[in-house]
Structure formats: C-alpha cells, structure tokens
Amino acid sequence: MSLLEALLVQRGLWVYWAIITLMMIGLYGVIARDHLVKKVMGLNVFQSSAILLYVAIGKVRGGTAAILLEGEENVLYSNPLPHVLMLTAIVVGIATTALALALTVRIQEAYGTLEEDELARLRVREDEEEAALDPHPFDPPGEPEDVEYPEVKVGGGAGGAGV
C-alpha cells in the first residue's frame, strides 16, 4: 500500500499523520531553534504528540466513557487505560518543562544570554582558558616551562552563586 493510499483510503489513519506532523514540528523546534526557551517549547510539542498518540490508541469508534451504568448492557467503551497512563506522562512533561525553564533562568543569570551560538562561543572561550592551564597532553612532564599560569578560579562559577 502506498503512503498516499494509506493517507486517503484508510480514513482512520489521519490522526496518526497529524500526530507525526506534530512530533516533527516539535523535534524541528528542538533542533533548529537557537533560543533555549524555544527549544523547550519544541520539546513540549514533541511530548504532546506522544500523549496524543496514546489517547488515539485508546479511542474506540463509537465508544463512550468507561462508566458502568445499571440497566445498560452491551455498551461499547473506549479503553480508559491509555488516558490514565497519560495523566502520569502529563505530569512528567510539566516537570520536565518546569525544570528546563528553571535551567534557562539560571543560564541567563550566569551567561547573560540564551542564544545558543553565543553560548557556544562563550563556552569555547572557557574551555580554551582551562586548556591553557594544561597546555598539551603530550608535553613532557617535569620539564619546567615558561607558562604563565592565569589566576585559578576555584570552582566559583561567575554570577548567580547560591541561588
């Protein structure tokens, strides 16, 4: 069966296409955006698509909420289990988003920017400064060198200490 057929003929499948589209939008946001908060939002969209996938799995066409009513037999129910699972997944999603946003607040405090390329530049400089303390892995040890050691900063991250 070609993809087009799958899309057009089996009308029940459109929901999966919608979910996949949503998922790709989310992943695209995570990968392509430079701003850290936008990445988090992309991640959020990605997680939502997974949640919708479960809800779609639980749906039975013509099915109703899984509540047992007296006198009514042979009622078609939707599967309630995926919904219950998704309550947990939603909590996980919120926790992840909250943690990620808290981290971006701390990154903004520490670096003064949330743009990824700028952060990468700052980080390369930090790594280079550190490497200057340890010039080359294969320098013969023990030989005195004329290396001026910069001020050692002991652990103390600049800015935002002990928040």
Partner: peptide
C-alpha cells in the same frame, strides 16, 4: 559549581527527554 554545568544539564535534559519520549512512544 562551574557555570558550564548549567549548559551540560540543559543539553542532557533535551537529549534525555527525547530519549524518554521515544521510549514512551515505543511502549505505546
């Protein structure tokens, strides 16, 4: 202590959440 820990944690969070999300989709 080092402020680079924040970025390290952030990238782990992004990767880890995608990993966790993939696992969840697989289970589904």
């Amino acid at each position: 202590r080092d402020r680079r820990a924040l970025m390290a944690s952030y990238s782990y969070l992004i990767m880890g959440t995608i990993g966790g999300g993939f696992f969840m989709i697989g289970v589904g």
